[in-house]
Simulated assay, not measured.
Amino acid sequence: MQTAAKNILLSLTLGLMVFTAVNLGAQSTFGIRGGLNASNISFDKLSERGERLGFHVGVFADVPVVPDFFSLQPELSYSTKGTAYDVLNERQSLNMSYVDFHLPVAFKLSTVDLQVGPFASYLISKPDFTVFDENRVVVDAFNAFDAGLTAGLSFNFNKVLLGIRYNQGFVNVSKDNAETLLGKGKNAVGQVSLGYRF
């Protein structure tokens, strides 16, 4: 699974390079965006799961493919994800930090962009999972690579944009040593962001 995720990430990167090179002469724009994350991981053996609040911040481009109809909007961002859960009557959080690469196609609907496309993520933190009732820690518990689908809307107000989107991972983030305790789990993240085009 890690090999498949690496291949997806490589393909996305190469695709971005090719399209960027082809569209250098087009009216591409660049910008920054950041905002709120509400994330969860679908561990089937972890009870009382809930959303963990975090944030994302990054840079993006808008590369026209068919002007005024659709464009590519590659984005590179830092994003905090994870999940919250209850154990021993206390709320705990599993905190995970990723570098995300999104490559959505954006369909231009007047001042609104409808976005859908793939993403790939790399885990840059090394979170452990603490088993409180057994007083032990599972180290190196999670796979580094994730990939999935992103979909959302951007509302454009001249150079300012307001975005909402949902990212669904397709890769099981649990390694074998964590899967026995947590089960299989996939990232799911809702995002609200504010951006600015230069």
Rank of each mutant, 00 (worst) to 15 (best):
M1V: 14
A4T: 14
A5V: 07
K6F: 13
N7W: 13
L9P: 04
L12Q: 12
L12A: 09
G15P: 08
A26C: 11
Q27V: 14
Q27I: 10
S28G: 15
I32N: 10
G34N: 05
G35C: 03
N37R: 04
A38K: 08
S39H: 02
N40Y: 02
D44Y: 10
K45C: 02
S47M: 05
E48L: 06
R49P: 07
R52I: 03
F55H: 11
F55E: 11
V59C: 15
D62E: 13
V63C: 14
P64Q: 09
F69P: 04
F69G: 05
Q73F: 01
L76H: 05
S77F: 01
S77V: 01
S77L: 11
S79W: 00
S79A: 12
T80Y: 00
T83C: 09
A84S: 15
D86G: 09
V87I: 06
L88N: 15
L88W: 02
E90V: 12
Q92V: 11
L94Q: 02
L94N: 00
M96C: 09
M96N: 07
Y98T: 06
D100E: 13
D100Y: 04
F101V: 08
L103A: 14
P104S: 04
V116H: 06
G117V: 00
A120H: 01
A120R: 02
S121A: 14
Y122V: 05
I124Y: 01
I124E: 08
K126E: 15
K126S: 15
F129N: 06
F129R: 01
V137R: 12
V138P: 05
V138E: 08
V138T: 07
V139R: 15
A141M: 03
F142R: 04
F142A: 08
A144T: 13
D146R: 03
G148N: 09
L149R: 03
T150E: 12
G152T: 01
G152M: 03
S154G: 10
N156P: 08
V160Q: 00
R165Y: 04
R165D: 08
N167D: 14
N167Y: 00
G169D: 03
F170Q: 03
V171R: 14
V173I: 09
K175W: 02
D176R: 10
T180Q: 13
L181Y: 12
L181M: 05
L181G: 00
L182K: 06
G183E: 03
K184C: 04
K186Q: 12
V189H: 02
Q191F: 04
Q191S: 13
V192L: 14
Y196P: 07
